[in-house]
């Protein structure tokens, strides 16, 4: 039983990490209908920037969590500026272009950021110093660290904040209007360019948060870390219904649970025929199944004609 609870916790933590990244994906998608393939790379830049700052401060007598906070505070503006630039350079000129054109520039940006990351931070893996408390707490025979609790809570808080932002503020209303129809929104006095920039900047700030959390949790950062993470987060966002904040959270947590329980129990379920090597197959299989029955994800709107 304690093993099962531990697997649930594992899934929840992993899922919250996916959700943190997926929220950024889904925001951009919600407003522009664009898969921002470079989002994972922004996460990477955020993680490595904060790492550099943290390493600078490692000698000082500041307490660990404060150092991490300063690192995060340094990474957020870098990522925001990066997100702003990416949108201006690679996506804005293509708003009227065929749908796949920005997808290709996104892939291009992703490659460029990876190489820039490698040039700045080198090819080696970096160990993220253990500045946050990692002594495990025991719940029903299972273990969870404070940092992991923080990740789960943070993901939920950020989701709630974003939902509030989108549904109750002026900017949020402008965002929804832009998502609905940018032309009409423009006619109604919404500065569409500005709203899209704001969306990118917020999404990139989230990427910085996600990057720091991911590297702190696994104590590792590397210029190649963004790609797989971005891919998983993208999967999570689609599973939940891309464009929907609650969906990103739900999809992330679900994907985390599927992976964790899949790796843990698939071997027993299939009598040892399939093992944890089929973890991803299991995850994608669930995704396909969900989409066959709910073609726009678990919480996605019924957008029949949006291709």
């Amino acid at each position: 039983m304690d093993i099962f609870i531990q697997q649930i916790i594992n899934g929840l933590v992993l899922g919250s990490i996916y959700a943190l990244v997926a929220l950024g994906y889904t925001m951009v998608y919600g407003i522009m209908g664009l898969i921002n393939f470079a989002h994972g790379e922004v996460v990477m830049i955020g993680a490595l920037t904060s790492l550099s700052i943290i390493k600078l401060l490692a000698g000082t007598s500041l307490p660990g969590p404060v150092v991490v906070l300063i690192g995060l505070a340094g990474a957020i503006p870098v990522c925001m500026a990066l997100g702003f630039t990416i949108e201006r350079v690679a996506y804005r000129p293509l708003r009227a272009a065929p749908r796949l054109a920005p997808l290709i520039t996104a892939i291009g940006v992703s490659i460029v950021l990876q190489q820039v990351g490698m040039l700045i931070w080198g090819r080696n893996y970096h160990a993220f110093p253990g500045l946050l408390p990692t002594t495990p707490r025991h719940i029903l025979g299972a273990q969870i660290t404070d940092l992991q609790v923080l990740i789960v809570v943070l993901a939920a808080l950020i989701m709630a904040a974003l939902i509030l932002l989108v549904n109750t503020t002026r900017i949020g209303r402008a965002m929804r209007a832009t998502a609905e129809n940018p032309d009409i929104a423009g006619l109604m006095g919404v500065d569409v360019n500005q709203i899209i920039s704001i969306t990118f900047v917020i999404g990139s700030a989230l990427a910085a948060v996600a990057g720091v959390m991911v590297s702190a949790n696994y104590s590792i950062a590397h210029y190649y870390m963004g790609f797989i993470l971005g891919l998983k987060a993208f999967t999570a966002a689609v599973l939940g219904g891309i464009g929907n904040m609650g969906g990103a959270m739900l999809g992330g947590v679900l994907l985390g649970l599927i992976e964790s329980l899949g790796a843990g129990y698939i071997g027993d379920l299939t009598g040892g025929f399939l093992g944890s090597n089929y973890q991803d197959v299991f995850a994608f299989f669930v995704l396909i199944l969900v989409l066959v029955f709910r073609p726009s994800g678990l919480m996605g709107e019924k957008l029949a004609e949006r291709a």
């Binding site: 898969i35 993208f234 090597n277 291709a307």
Partner: peptide
């Protein structure tokens, strides 16, 4: 199974399919 899917939903399912084939080969 993907006939009803559009756009990016189709993209992610095909991506998953590609990964499934590779994982089985592996």
């Amino acid at each position: 199974p993907t006939l009803r899917l559009r756009g990016d939903y189709l993209a992610i399912v095909t991506l998953g399919f590609g990964e499934i084939v590779r994982i089985f080969l592996n």
